[in-house]
Amino acid sequence: MNEKPIVSLRQARTNKSKFYLYTIVFILSAIYIIGLFTTPFSVSGSAASPLDTLRRIFIVPLTDMEYIVQFPVYIGYMIETVAIAYAGVTVATILAVPVAFLAARNVTKRYSYVGKALLNAIRAVPELIFAIIFVAAVGIGPYAGVLAISINSIGMLGKLYAEVIESIDQSNVDAIKASGGNRIQAMWYGVLPQVLPEFSSYSIYRFEIDVRASTVLGIVGAGGIGAPLILATYQRSWEDVGMILIVVVVFVSLIDLISGKIRKRLV
């Protein structure tokens, strides 16, 4: 029997693909090596034993009457948090519509990049930074939080809305124009019915995100449950951290559940 040549599972690499492969491997290893050397991996630990801390976070708030009676306080903060998210996302929904039309390729043609660039710039700013700016300008309170949430949500909603507008079926619009409708009628009867369910679905989805985002804002004074959270953290009052955690998880789960149901019915 004659010897057969060794076969590989892969086709032999060309020089070009070899070059690409080595470059990628080099860049990736450089990134990780720099990361390994510049991150302080030391663990300081805390004075208290971790087990005791965990007990204070997860068990004491649910078993000790002294803490259980305080839940209404944090529920109040959480309601404020949800209100910030709701007011913010409502404002954002209204304002995102014109921005989205500005950024849609089939509406503004080659000028759509202006709207797109604006939306990209907004999305590159974390909501906490917006909150810092607004707190500095209008003072501490949930009003600054609403402003931060709405501008931040415009960034995402505008982008998603623009994609919906870009994917609409032009034939409906043409049909209305062909039967003598004007531009506004074409918009009202041809475009809106197509985009409205998706717009609302995205807004509800964004509301879910904003409830989570609003829990953070309080750490810079923009209202909501973040304020007592940061206070409790500084005071090492783990029982309060535990209560806040429970309230947040319950509220967020409920809101996700309800909004998920609504979104399913919409689409």
């Binding site: 991150t39 302080p40 991996f41 030391s42 663990v43 300081s44 630990g45 805390s46 971790p50 801390t53 965990l54 976070i57 989570r212 985002a213 829990t215 953070v216 750490i219 973040g226 959270l229 953290t233 090492r236 783990w238 951290v241 806040i244 955690l245 947040v248 998880v249 967020v252 789960s253 996700d256």
Partner: peptide, 21 residues
């Protein structure tokens, strides 16, 4: 996914201590 990142950070700071870890 219902736990915001800030609360996770507080939890880990409480147990592991201050720092990048």
């Amino acid at each position: 996914r219902t736990i915001p990142e800030i609360i996770l950070a507080v939890l880990f700071v409480a147990v592991v201590g201050i720092g990048a870890v």
